[in-house]
Design a protein around this nucleic acid. Structure first.
Lengths: 302, 302
DNA sequence: CCACGCGTTCGTCAGTGGCGAACCCTAACC
DNA sequence: GGTTAGGGTTCGCCACTGACGAACGCGTGG
């Protein structure tokens, strides 16, 4: 027996109604068939999902977990169904751009403005994501263009150079390292850190660097944005690693210091990723060319 | 026939390998069985997914879409499987907090710092999401605590008051409205807007207000964060609506003006949402109580 | 023209999934 | 204490499904 949506659907229905008989009625099935399905689910997971009693059922903790996960899966399947239905009448008039925060805070506003001046009829839907997710989503056709840190992603994507984007250390002003201008990353590992999104490229980079230094990276709190991280650092919750250009906006008004990280991996570059230029819509292709042009025209960040 | 993961899995395998025979071999199945499954998928969706030729197959546009959607669904199922496997040995030592950007930029850093001073052993995973998604994810047990705009969400959640969070209009300094201190929202609708995430509470609010004013809301670009929006406004791409307190950090260093919005709906409040206090872990409950205490102790934002 | 590699259709058969019947258990009511 | 009601489980049965191998069709390359 394998996992199947019908069993999950029945399980959700049972959980919602509180009885196998009610779920059977609602699904126009015999109680015995539903009961059997649930037993098979429990056998599959090798864990009880329900507590049965003469008033119906209660979920076990594992059952509660399965309920939530099942809803996600079933929602996804419904989405798939819906999108495949709509696909026949689908159309493409908006360019979907996924960009990391570095690109957004430093370059995209000006470049988008210039782009819209030349192409007022093109729409752009811009979402901020972390770099590994950007490359994956471009690969999976959930975004037309990705703008993020250059990284080894293992996908079959076209890559174009964008801008330079070094990583720096942000520390509270009273921190022991605060008077330094430059630091090796291994020195930072003696202090607690404020971390970024588990999947972010920076997070992966500093975890790898910590591993190489044979030291533990102590992350007290994780946040999902650069400005939130700066605020946490200012509040004294730890130090943080961020791209220099991306935080230029924030640190002027904050009580934090910014230190250069001398490790080689901290010299970062941004890239533009697309699946295949020839398969992009005209709007997307024009936007990519605009970004490339803007990047090659600016020899250093302004 | 209904949608089933095995068929989707086979479809993905066929798409990846480029031939039905190759996918059959890789799946230890007969070519005829795979071929039949794919035909049934096409019948189910009532649309061709593959172009067959004597060298194998190519995906149709619908097939490409299904490939990506299937990967998502299958990934979700694998996740479910994994989490159900890990569930038996799962443990709860970290509090998952979803918060909107307003809460993060204004209150959470100080309050988290104070919290950690009292509870150094508790971990927090903080993710920034938009308000409607926060309530949904708390409801779905994907977050323990939600901190976001008070809104009518329709879920069975416990709610506690948090802070006040008025909405304001941000305009470029040369904008016709720039010299105003106060404005009614309907006046803003004469100009293009920079929009937020489609699902964000602010976006929904201004769309509703535009509808009430019988005017069109022209959104030239949509971004997913407040600072990105400020930068787009500064770049002249339009005006934007944001929470006053949340952007205090940014606007000092930018060439933009901030105007009060006089409509009633712009007087916003933040709330704390949990599923059921009694069912939270001790760590999560302690954190909720800390937030409530911090909110009732501060009569106005500082 | 032949060989090869691709895919499709069809008949067959073991396994699946849902049914109804029979049974068990517990709580509530008289 | 006995009866009723509502819950769930197990088992035998049967129609249907899903995978197989065989036979076939098609286009390309040698």
């Amino acid at each position: 027996m394998k996992l199947d949506p019908t069993s999950l659907k029945l399980f959700v229905k049972v959980a919602e109604l509180g009885t196998i008989t009610g779920a059977a009625d609602a699904s126009f099935m015999a109680t015995s068939a539903v009961s059997k399905r649930l037993s098979e689910l429990e056998a599959y997971f090798n864990t009880p999902l329900l507590k049965r009693n003469n008033r119906g059922i209660e979920l076990t903790p594992a059952g509660s977990a399965l309920l939530n996960l099942s809803r996600g899966v079933l929602h996804n399947l419904e989405d798939l169904d819906l999108q495949m239905r709509d696909y026949a009448s689908g159309q493409r008039g908006i360019v979907r751009v996924f960009a990391n925060m570095s690109a957004i805070t430093q370059y995209l506003p000006q470049e988008m403005r210039a782009f819209f001046e030349q192409h007022p009829d093109i729409g752009v839907q811009l979402e901020e994501k972390v770099s590994p997710i950007i490359t994956r989503e471009v690969m999976n056709n959930n975004a037309d263009i990705g703008v993020c840190a250059q990284l080894h992603h293992g996908y079959d994507l076209m890559e174009f150079p964008y801008h330079v984007d070094d990583l720096v250390l942000v520390v509270p002003q009273q921190h022991p390292l605060a008077q330094r201008e430059r630091v090796f990353f291994r020195e930072c590992l003696d202090y607690p850190h404020v971390g970024l999104h588990t999947a972010s490229a920076i997070n992966l980079e500093i975890m790898r660097a910590a591993s190489m230094a044979n030291k533990t990276l102590r992350i007290r709190i994780q946040v999902t944005s650069y400005d939130a991280l700066c605020l946490m650092v200012q509040a004294g919750l730890g130090v943080g690693v961020l791209p220099r250009g991306a935080i230029r906006q924030y640190v002027d008004g904050l009580n934090v210091n910014v230190l250069s990280i001398q490790d080689e991996w901290a010299r970062r570059k941004l890239s533009i990723y697309v699946k295949d230029l020839d398969r992009l819509s005209m709007a997307a292709r024009v936007l990519v060319e605009h970004f490339i042009q803007a990047a090659s025209g600016a020899s250093s960040p302004s």
